[in-house]
Amino acid sequence: MSADWGTVTVGRITLRETFTVTESGLDGRELSLSGQESSPDLTRAQLVVRHDNLLALQNSVIPVTFTDKPERNGFYTVKSVSADYAEWSGEVVTSTWKLDLTRLGTQGSLDLQSRLTGAVRANPYSLVGERWHAPPIGHYGYFTGATNPGVMTRTGEDGPHLVYRGVPAGSAPRWGCDPTDYLRGRVRFLSGGEELVGCDQECSTTSWSLSNGLVNVTPSVSASLDVQTYSGGAWQSKLWRVFSDTSTEVTSWDAVTLLHNEPEMVTVRLTKGLNPGRFVMDLTMRRGARVVEGYLKRGTADTLTVRLAAMENNTAPASGEYVVATGDDPAGNRFIAGSASNFTPHASGGLSLAATTRLDFFLGAVVNGSSPASGDEAAVLRDQYLAAMPETIHGVRR
């Protein structure tokens, strides 16, 4: 991207900022952008991802920010999008695009409202979970009515992330955020090193990552998953093995599919053929979470297992809903794995369930294990997993 041009960021997509934007103010305030991305300067792979990301923009609330026209920063919805793709083989590839946006307002005039939906996961432990929520880093004025939630801070790669605990039932929290802060602490899915937008995308089966700045999950050449926790200013790795039956570890995947892809939550499905049949693992990451959520499924009943690649001493509470390391690892953390199912703890550290077609689980770490950050102990991670709720964001005039 030439140094002579600024950039415009539309949601999670960064484009070259052109000299002119077209605005209208009839029934609603509209803003139209058009431009062209090309390879070179981008690589061909980057150009194709940018083209596909543009066409994946949805009619949801997105921040739009400009380098040279910051007065037009604000929150918008996408009215329409189009892009013409052209390739002169071996020479130039271009994507000529056009965006029509509806302006909702500036950060000073607009509240963002989070509709938290869903229910506590059914579990045999009679646990009700904990209603929690994590807006973007840099938000302000978090409002839930007459009852305030508790607050804790989790520090990740993007900085300190406020997490609200005990959010009052039935409330739809409202909060403010500068558009330039909105994407901080978001959940990202990268394929081949490029962040993807939307779900209609081709995903690499070997080079991908799922991260929220607190937890990062990637494939591993020596295990099924590498689940990394951010602590002490760096990523700390734990390798996990996933078994599709009593003895078969899954170390490669036939397909990777995005099921949900928004800054506040991403769900990705990994599929493996069993010849015959198939084995599926869904992974979900939420903004502000210390764990990755998983769900295993196969057509015929067998033993499903998720366990550490290298054994660590571990224990479980009397109720048995999770297992956690008994001592701190070299980074000062303790692994944790749990489920809403009545599983059997694995000796290496992990969980297993016999004669089943499905198994839910969560994986993560108690940071600063023997002296965890306030409120970030094993039971909190369990309760927040049990009450994880999808989030839909709306713009509301103040």
Rank of each mutant, 00 (worst) to 15 (best):
residue 208 W to N: 10
residue 285 M to R: 06
residue 291 V to N: 10
residue 240 W to S: 03
residue 282 D to A: 02
residue 255 A to R: 02
residue 232 G to R: 10
residue 187 V to M: 01
residue 192 G to K: 09
residue 195 E to I: 06
residue 292 V to F: 08
residue 259 L to D: 11
residue 216 N to T: 10
residue 242 V to L: 10
residue 248 T to Y: 05
residue 200 D to V: 04
residue 204 S to Y: 06
residue 278 R to V: 14
residue 238 K to Q: 15
residue 251 T to A: 08
residue 275 N to V: 14
residue 263 P to E: 05
residue 230 Y to L: 05
residue 274 L to W: 07
residue 218 T to W: 06
residue 283 L to G: 08
residue 280 V to W: 07
residue 245 D to M: 11
residue 196 L to H: 03
residue 245 D to Q: 14
residue 204 S to P: 00
residue 238 K to A: 15
residue 246 T to H: 04
residue 287 R to A: 14
residue 208 W to T: 06
residue 279 F to W: 02
residue 222 S to W: 04
residue 217 V to E: 02
residue 227 V to L: 01
residue 237 S to I: 05
residue 268 V to N: 02
residue 281 M to T: 06
residue 200 D to K: 11
residue 217 V to Q: 02
residue 284 T to I: 13
residue 222 S to F: 03
residue 225 L to W: 10
residue 280 V to L: 10
residue 192 G to H: 13
residue 207 S to W: 09
residue 207 S to L: 11
residue 224 S to H: 07
residue 232 G to K: 10
residue 277 G to V: 09
residue 218 T to N: 08
residue 278 R to E: 15
residue 221 V to T: 15
residue 191 S to M: 00
residue 271 T to R: 14
residue 226 D to R: 13
residue 195 E to T: 00
residue 261 N to S: 05
residue 185 G to H: 09
residue 234 A to K: 12
residue 198 G to E: 07
residue 198 G to F: 08
residue 199 C to S: 14
residue 247 S to E: 03
residue 232 G to I: 12
residue 273 G to W: 13
residue 232 G to W: 07
residue 270 L to Y: 14
residue 232 G to V: 10
residue 243 F to I: 11
residue 283 L to C: 03
residue 252 S to Q: 12
residue 215 V to P: 01
residue 252 S to I: 01
residue 183 L to Y: 09
residue 241 R to G: 08
residue 269 R to D: 06
residue 257 T to S: 12
residue 190 L to E: 13
residue 194 E to I: 07
residue 192 G to L: 00
residue 283 L to K: 01
residue 194 E to M: 14
residue 216 N to M: 12
residue 263 P to I: 03
residue 250 V to P: 02
residue 233 G to Q: 06
residue 267 T to A: 09
residue 180 T to H: 02
residue 229 T to N: 11
residue 255 A to D: 04
residue 249 E to D: 01
residue 266 V to L: 08
residue 262 E to G: 04
residue 194 E to C: 13
residue 181 D to T: 05
residue 269 R to Q: 13
residue 241 R to W: 09
residue 279 F to G: 02
residue 210 L to Q: 05
residue 209 S to Q: 15
residue 270 L to W: 11
residue 280 V to R: 15
residue 273 G to H: 15
residue 185 G to N: 12
residue 201 Q to D: 12
residue 266 V to A: 14
residue 258 L to P: 00
residue 237 S to N: 05
residue 250 V to D: 02
residue 193 G to I: 09
residue 181 D to V: 00
residue 270 L to G: 07
residue 283 L to S: 06
residue 212 N to E: 10
residue 248 T to H: 02
residue 234 A to P: 01
residue 193 G to K: 12
residue 282 D to T: 02
residue 256 V to D: 01
residue 227 V to H: 05
residue 244 S to E: 12
residue 262 E to T: 05
residue 287 R to M: 09
residue 235 W to M: 12
residue 229 T to L: 04
residue 277 G to K: 07
residue 201 Q to M: 13
residue 220 S to I: 10
residue 219 P to V: 06
residue 262 E to N: 04
residue 240 W to I: 04
residue 280 V to P: 07
residue 248 T to I: 00
residue 202 E to Q: 15
residue 230 Y to T: 03
residue 230 Y to K: 00
residue 224 S to E: 06
residue 273 G to M: 14
residue 283 L to M: 10
residue 270 L to N: 14
residue 281 M to A: 13
residue 234 A to G: 10
residue 241 R to H: 14
residue 247 S to D: 06
residue 240 W to Y: 05
